[in-house]
Nucleic acid binder design. Structure first.
Lengths: 119, 119
DNA sequence: CTGGTAGATTGACGACTGTCGATCGACACT
DNA sequence: AGTGTCGATCGACAGTCGTCAATCTACCAG
């Protein structure tokens, strides 16, 4: 994907409307498909650097990639890698403005995962 | 760990009382330590087989390991591996009764992770 | 004591993941 | 055009993970 399409980073499947995404984990036995999709989402959260990144973005509301490198203590390619993983999981979305990419959380997606952990 | 101690599987640190375990992810920047602990917990959920296993245990209330092998379609060592990972994450706990180990979810732990995904 | 069964452990293998240096494309400013 | 910067991509490397066959340890029934 060329850099000019950064602004178009979205989850693989754009969940239309109030899609619950995944049935509550503890309510009924999960299907294989649902389990794979949900596991992929949790995998995005299964890294301390990504959790701190997500936390930083959520706290700041909107963050430029260049402002993530220092607080995370990681190289630029590594930060880029993690933003990509979070974006592909639908947890953050990036918008390119001028030279910079501004990241923000996707609250609905976080809420979906939160809901999946319920009854 | 010898099999005779199966009944003692517990999370590494027994959270006393209503310990929130991890501050809400989206409220303030996470510390490195919290991020590592939380990431380890989410890593336990980042596998489709473990999600289905957890779902099965939650739905049934209490499940014997021998009853997990068939619905999961995995070998006995693999099932044992996954129950171990979930138990070490504190998400399920096993009690040995006679020849069988009975697994059940630890709702408080699931709720902790759910809370960490909030504001 | 002997045989059978539940489940943990070991060892091995392939696949995947996090990390960084080097490079490249896009953009803004002179 | 020339220069500098932001950020994506590539290639490589070490480390971790999921899986299973084989083995081992408890436990129960006879």
């Amino acid at each position: 994907m060329p850099a000019s399409e950064i602004g178009t980073i979205v989850p693989e499947e754009s969940a239309p409307g109030g899609d619950p995404c995944c049935a509550p984990l503890l309510a009924a036995p999960m299907g294989v498909g649902d389990a794979e999709e949900l596991a992929a989402a949790f995998a995005a959260l299964a890294d301390p650097v990504r959790l701190r990144l997500l936390s930083l973005v959520a706290t700041a509301g909107e963050v430029c990639s260049c402002d993530l490198q220092d607080p995370l203590g990681k190289s630029q390619p590594t930060v880029s890698h993690h933003t990509r993983v979070l974006a592909e999981a639908g947890l953050i979305s990036g918008e390119k403005r001028g030279r910079w990419v501004w990241w923000s959380v996707v609250p609905r997606r976080v809420e979906q995962l939160r809901a999946a952990l319920g009854t």
